[in-house]
Nucleic acid binder design. Structure first.
Lengths: 340, 340
DNA sequence: ATGAAAGCGCTAACAT
DNA sequence: ATGTTAGCGCTTTCAT
């Protein structure tokens, strides 16, 4: 009687067969006799046998594991994407190893290093702040797909993201349809997706012949920065606000209400992301909704393809966002003068 | 020239030393000569050598890895706890393997199985829905610490949580101090932490001689359920609401405002958790704040202790929550009649 | 300070 | 259908 955990060898002994047969049986190979299979399964069960993943990885020279790096787990956007990834990976028989860098960007690099040491077969980056050359180096080592950022495109790296330019365009077009023209954009700060959203706003204003009245107020991606930006934006007497993301939009709404105005009667507000978490159902925010779980599923599917066929060239996958019209948008009620 | 990744053997050859010396050098052993160490480091660097974690785990018979199971990554409470865990584990030289069960409770069990296959040396459960007998079985296999739930206590399992009873008491006491007596509790549904919070409410009402006017309205942990519960609670004409968590409190505030009442002028609201995420800074919610990251740090520290000393008996660690007085509480303004 | 050798638990040819 | 053998890349005695 051994103190340590039972190995495949113990199972073989108890079942009176060879190690390799046990291995085959446990992998579900069809070339194992019914009788032996039964014996082996019983033996494994009675011993409380459990596969040793480290040994399997070493012997099989593949880990059946992929790594995921999430920049910020606090952001529900990323959590939802992750859901999609996990579900799809499970379907494909892969284990997902998740690490979240957190505060310090230095960890981001060392976390990837750790994943690589674990012999991951593929890597999914859900929002990152890696330099292009680092990305290139990583993608050269392991099939990599980046979710949420399409600004850096490398020949060996797949990309899955929503079309921020088109998405923001949807918001502007809708507001114009409602009759708005004093539409102000609250930016999300200096990061690639936010830049694209501003870009989408500007393009949409232009194609609606509203270039003249286009105004971008610098903001951020939290409700606090949204609040601050909206406060400034109010001086421009807008009838509608197109905001960088849902959190900032919530902040903007708070600022508007605090100024004694109503949403949407006095000012319409549109967010971006379509997060579904506590604090939003009652705000009932009109937003440009990204198919978040789908982004995750697509990334996972794509990664599995790349793992199974490494030669295949990388793809840039774009999914379209959808305007979710809810309670924070309405026709403008004339009145307000353009102070500018 | 080999196509596959360089192994310790390749490094040894290039550095003109033995495999074992390379191993020692890479582990930072002091009994490696300066000269050799330098040669080895250079060789490793030029080859782009990276340790194979699977091989290390197998040979060393320990993985230097711990597993974390998080029930719901969408909940910022858990994300914050996780931060604490990761930071502390990194300090101790452990890799953290994170899995999040997600929707289906069946996965919860299989995810733990996966972690165990990876030879984790310890397990942290951040909110789970495992039956006591399953927990016992797991704790028997690997040092385990449960965060956030103290209802199930097992001799072999550590527990780290905040004192929900005392925390809710803080909220009630504060309201009483302000002069409130019509204090209604919105419960968080049927789960251990929520039950404790209701318990804390009832006890505090009793010690303040308010048992008579104690009222618990069944609710939930999302803003939608908080909204619904608050709507019902308004019929009791309360001057203050003690709510199960921050999300539900936000929903409650929305319901109050929609009913034409103001927070805190007409009704005070206190949440629980102290989440710091987008949508809260403007609500400026008075809340009972748990030291979330600290819960994670404590859990990690405790787990490392248990790993290093498996014989040590399990502990039940409780940290106290803190009342964070912000903008949603105020003295009652007389007026409102108790309809009940 | 360094090397030789054994072996961790498994998979994967290759027999039979 | 089943057994034999040879490693996977590393750590770890044990010599030297």
């Amino acid at each position: 009687m051994s103190v340590s955990k039972p190995s495949i060898h113990d199972v073989a002994t108890l079942a009176n067969v060879s190690k390799s047969l046990v291995s085959l049986a446990l992998m579900g190979s069809p070339k194992v006799g019914e009788e032996s299979r039964a014996k082996i399964l019983v033996a494994a069960e009675t011993l409380g046998y459990r596969k040793n993943a480290a040994a399997r990885t070493l012997a099989a020279k593949r880990s059946k594991t992929i790594g995921v790096l999430v920049l910020d787990l606090h952001n529900p956007v990323f959590a939802e994407i992750l859901d999609g990834v996990q579900i799809e990976m499970r379907k494909n028989g892969f284990t997902t190893m998740l690490v979240s860098g957190g505060e310090d960007p230095v960890f981001e690099q060392s976390d990837i290093e750790t994943l690589l040491q674990f012999q991951i077969e593929g890597l999914i980056l859900i929002s990152h702040r890696l330099a292009p050359e680092r990305l290139a180096a990583i993608a050269a080592e392991v099939p990599t797909v980046v979710v949420t950022r399409s600004d850096i495109q490398l020949p060996a790296m797949d990309t899955v993201s929503n079309d921020d330019v088109a998405g923001t365009g949807l918001a502007v077009d809708f507001l114009v349809t409602l009759g708005h023209s004093k539409i102000v954009c609250l930016s999300g700060g200096e990061n690639p997706p936010s830049n694209s959203r501003v870009q989408g706003y500007l393009q949409a204003m232009e194609r609606n012949n509203l270039s003249e009245s286009a105004r971008v107020v610098p903001g951020g991606l939290s409700d606090a920065t949204g609040y601050a930006a909206a406060t400034k934006a109010l001086k421009l007497s807008p009838t509608a606000l197109v905001v960088a993301n849902d959190f900032a939009a919530m902040g903007a709404i708070a600022a508007i209400q605090e100024a004694g105005l109503r949403v949407p009667e006095d000012i319409s507000v549109i967010g971006y992301d379509g997060i579904s978490i506590g604090g939003l159902k009652n705000v009932n925010l009109t937003t440009v909704s990204q198919p978040l779980a789908e982004l995750g599923t697509l990334a996972a599917t794509r990664l599995v393809e790349r793992i199974n066929n490494p030669k295949e060239p990388a793809k840039q996958i774009t999914v379209s966002a959808q305007l979710l019209v809810r309670g924070t948008t309405k026709e403008p009620t004339g009145a307000t003068e353009l102070a500018n």
